[in-house]
Nucleic acid binder design. Sequence first.
DNA 1: CCTGAAAGTATGACTGG
DNA 2: CCAGTCATACTTTCAGG
Lengths: 168, 168
Amino acid sequence: MEEIDRAIVAALTGDGRLSYTDLAEKVGLSVSAVHQRVRRLEQRGVIKGYSARVSFEALELPLTAFVAIRPFDPSQPDDAPERLAHLPEIDSCYSVAGEDFYLLLVRVAGPADLERVLQEIRTAANVTTRTTVVLSTPYEHRPPKISAEPAVRGRSRPAAESAGSTAG
Amino acid sequence: MEEIDRAIVAALTGDGRLSYTDLAEKVGLSVSAVHQRVRRLEQRGVIKGYSARVSFEALELPLTAFVAIRPFDPSQPDDAPERLAHLPEIDSCYSVAGEDFYLLLVRVAGPADLERVLQEIRTAANVTTRTTVVLSTPYEHRPPKISAEPAVRGRSRPAAESAGSTAG
DNA sequence: CCTGAAAGTATGACTGG
DNA sequence: CCAGTCATACTTTCAGG
């Protein structure tokens, strides 16, 4: 990916509702060109979609917790993510290396809700849980570093490109 | 918050670029009314902003890890979040209950990058780290459950519903 | 791959139930 | 608090360098 595409992605991660007009000004292209690039980025899957950022406190889900799970019986087929997908309190599910099998991020209304969700997790996926309550969130979902200077790290790339220089 | 506002928030978490026209159709109000409600939701901080969802693989950040940290010297002032904020590889920082002080979510290009970031975390915040590598992400950042559970029992005027299968 | 322009559509403010 | 209208701005497509 090249410099202008990175600038577009960076701008849209900061404000997903930026108009093509503003975007064109930011990156120094015409509106049509920017529009074309955004469509290509969406089509290639670089931009997967757009979301509103909501306040979980305002949605009455002020309690966040990480729930590490591991199966009671490791010989059983491991389909925990599917068996837990129906629980709307689970924000994210990560398959992890280490002692645990999965790490879940859950958001609930309070301790009583957390207790209920933990029970549902245990019964639905036949797992044990180890829960870490989040006390506060200094920052979350920060835009990734998308610099204009792509650092090539140890992967083979087309021979025509050379590290650190702009390619045509 | 009431039912229609919840429906609006749910729709916008699923697609942050929905037009007010589409939104009005979904919730069964006029464009003007929906527009007014969205502005109030933004103003009240329920909707904090809009973002593009990007593919971290496409951004050449395919390696995700959780880094639990705790200070070398617990008597020192605990300002780890500020001292780590400058590291762009840190996606999120959670203050947690339990053995560790903070849980960081980091995204990097590969193992070599992870090693470098861990060193930077340790020196910048004077902490020890315990890292859990993410192998895969079955799902992430799912829209929270918003509707169907009003806080106060009571029914306002029924809104005409049409075409309801969005944002589970 | 870019620019520029034209048609269709959404937005934002305002009037009025 | 909701609906309708209108001027302005944006989006989207098409022709062309």
